[in-house]
Design a protein around this nucleic acid. Sequence first.
DNA 1: GGTGTGACTTGTACCAACTGCC
DNA 2: GGCAGTTGGTACAAGTCACACC
Length: 604
Amino acid sequence: MKRCFCVISRFIYISAERNKGASLVSNVSRYYSGSAAAKTRSDLRWEESKSSDSQKWSRLEHKGPYFAPEYDPLPDNVPFYYDGRLLKLSPATEEIATFYAKMLDHEYTSKEVFQNNFFTDWREEMTDEERKLIKTLSKCDFSHMHKYFVEKSEERKNMTKEEKQVLKEESSRLMEEYGFCVLDGHREKIGNFKLEPPGLFRGRGEHPKMGKLKKRIQPEHVTINCSQDSKIPEAPAGHRWKRVQHDNTVTWLASWLENIHGRPKYIMLNPSSKLKGEKDWQKYETARQLKVCVNAIRKQYKRDWTSREMKSRQRGVAIYFIDKLALRAGNEKDEESADTVGCCSLRVEHISLHRRLDGLEHVVEFDFLGKDSIRYYNKVPVEKQVFKNLKLFIKHKDPEDDLFDRITTINLNKALNECMPGLTAKVFRTFNASTTLQDQLNKLTTEDMTVEEKILSYNRANRAVAILCNHQRAAPKTFEKSMQILQEKIQKKKEQIEEAKKELKEAKKAHKDAPSDKSKKLVEKKEKLVQRLCEQLKKLQLQETDREENKVIALGTSKLNYLDPRITVAWCKKHNVPIEKIYNKTQRDKFTWAIHMTDENFQF
DNA sequence: GGTGTGACTTGTACCAACTGCC
DNA sequence: GGCAGTTGGTACAAGTCACACC
């Protein structure tokens, strides 16, 4: 096994070095090759080099985070009743009560875990007097608070244009003041300059901590990261920062510990920034390197299926799943989070083995909750040896036992890294997603298509990737209704076409009976009308297909995180599809690097 | 080799802003 | 101009993975 990995490693090392040598130079030159005029000051950033890989910047200056506004107590006419008795809550207690009251419309507030967590945390923040009094959540009447917030929300919606303009200007001012930093002399947009306001933690799926109080972040909780010679951000009046540090090996501007899990959170740059863009580009380059050696890796993991060592067999099957099904690595999780799994953390209960199913042999049926508690359900025919191994792995195990009990994501990634420097489980997802997009685009696009048809093809290719990566979304609430409206439009258009055709026929007849310039013009006019209506119908039908196929599939995640944007840019250029039809403004900003450096011949 | 921590990416839901239709 | 439907941006949760430490 190890020997084989070494052979592969050497082979890859040569390819990687070859790539690396050419990469930065060709990257930058390709970046400019598209448009000399586009070479602006901000573009030049890409030519700058850092003194080492770990150093992320030389100079960093920013204003620090923007804090959530202080709590504004409820007006006196919004009562709170406990057990039928009117109570005036202390501001801190009232604030937490409002978090709950605002959520009453959501189904999860009725869950026992949510209620228990909320009530426990709420009582901790109460005054002694309040705590003595308020002992049962069901006796609390939040309905007046709830009504107040519904009304407030309505008021906001009904604001005049001028009032909305004032808010917009205030928001722009904040963005201008806090939303940018200066990194190595360039003004860069910050991703999340506003600190998260206090509230109740929701979590996704059956999260054991749902309903817990997310406490207000104070300056004393925040660490600032900036360069020593920069103007250090000032803490709000009467406060001071937890710490000010000058660590240029990290990219974050500020951090704090969130109180729910005790994990750090960060203020970081926007995806359009140079720092993020370079990282993104590197990610896709690593995935392209995998393309060079994936055949050797596949041969190796197939050999591992018959290894004498159980660990190797399990690793071989796990990498096969990661490669074939684009499963996530599946790190171990603590008890304090929702019960979700990935490849390495799959349990026996998550798979069913069928020697024969739906006319196929050796079918594995997967059914588990993955990231964000999204269900992964798939029936996959696998190689006979994989099937045999799985039977072996589950032998004498209970449903709740680990399927792959001899491996972890750490040693799996270690083995992958020996195959190819920088290779980890998630690289397979990027690689398979981008490869799928490229293949599908090649298959689904022909020159004779209209731009609308090409866009449908693109969305279908994008959809194939989203399905592979299991990117699901809840069907939009208005889906059925909007489909019905669209279908009515289609029906109406069909009727219009029938009518127009009839009129055309009549015009032709009239022209035949008594030809004149006027009758000729009328025929031409009717012909044009029929043609225009048919085009409109086709467009509507394409829209219908696209929307129907997209009902529960989320395309955004793969577009933003898994599909090498150069594939898209090259396809747009080759097929004369305006890039604006595929990427919106934000996406174009994020992928500026790809838009500049890619010509129509790019191949992933 | 196991565990904890930190840094960063990936992911969905929600809501405000925008768009197109009547 | 008003409204409904759609889109885009934001919020923030939940992953991955590297690294330090024992």
